[in-house]
Amino acid sequence: MKLFSDTITNLENGLKYSSVKNRAIAQNIANVDTPNYKAKDVSFKEHLSQAQGHLQANKTHEKHLPFHQTSNEIKTSTRTGVTYNHNGNSVDLDKEMSELAENQIYYQALVERINGKFNSIKSVLNGGN
């Protein structure tokens, strides 16, 4: 028996993604002047494909294709093929600051939603008060 619904698990995975994204952005900003540093990125598309790996399906016929589970680890990739500075650095500070603000809004929305879920559970445990 599951104590919490899949919604809380999905929100938790979203928080993990946002945390990894924030760490990558912070590294990029910290290395804005480092020669030949290549900016790191965490792609939502990759995160989504990982989340889809957790879909469960019932195989009703032996000729159906199997579903494979993927790793729950969020991957960080290096941006290649772009250079913004004369020293080979690929960090665009304006882009990083924009992504940081967007990620902070995303993280805060997830925190508010998970707080709402826990407040609902708390309300039920207190008898609806």
Rank of each mutant, 00 (worst) to 15 (best):
M1K: 03
K2N: 10
L3T: 10
L3E: 06
L3K: 08
D6M: 13
D6A: 12
T7K: 12
I8A: 12
T9P: 04
T9V: 14
N10E: 06
L11V: 08
G14R: 09
K16M: 10
K16T: 10
Y17T: 02
K21F: 05
K21Q: 10
N22L: 15
N22V: 01
Q27K: 11
N28V: 01
N28R: 07
I29E: 00
I29D: 04
V32R: 13
T34E: 03
T34N: 07
T34W: 01
N36A: 11
K38F: 04
K40L: 14
K40R: 10
K40G: 04
V42S: 06
S43A: 11
S43N: 09
F44P: 08
F44L: 09
K45C: 01
E46L: 03
H47D: 07
L48G: 01
Q50T: 12
A51I: 09
A51T: 07
A51V: 08
Q52G: 14
G53C: 06
H54N: 13
H54Q: 13
H54M: 11
A57I: 14
K59A: 08
H61A: 15
H61T: 03
E62F: 14
K63W: 01
H64S: 15
L65C: 01
P66W: 08
P66V: 07
F67W: 11
Q69Y: 08
Q69D: 13
T70P: 01
N72W: 01
N72T: 13
E73L: 12
I74F: 05
K75N: 14
K75V: 12
K75Y: 06
T76A: 05
S77Y: 04
S77I: 05
R79E: 04
T80S: 10
G81Q: 01
G81W: 06
Y84A: 08
Y84S: 07
Y84P: 00
H86E: 14
G88C: 04
N89P: 05
V91Y: 02
V91E: 01
K95I: 11
K95F: 06
E96Y: 05
E96G: 07
E96V: 07
M97D: 00
S98P: 01
S98T: 15
S98A: 14
S98E: 06
E99Y: 07
L100F: 11
L100N: 10
A101L: 14
A101Y: 10
N103H: 08
N103K: 09
Q104E: 11
Y107W: 06
Y107N: 12
Q108C: 09
A109W: 02
A109R: 13
V111N: 12
E112Y: 10
R113K: 13
I114L: 11
G116W: 03
G116D: 02
K117R: 10
F118S: 04
N119T: 05
S120A: 12
I121G: 04
K122G: 10
K122H: 13
S123N: 15
S123P: 02
G127D: 06
G128S: 06
N129G: 13
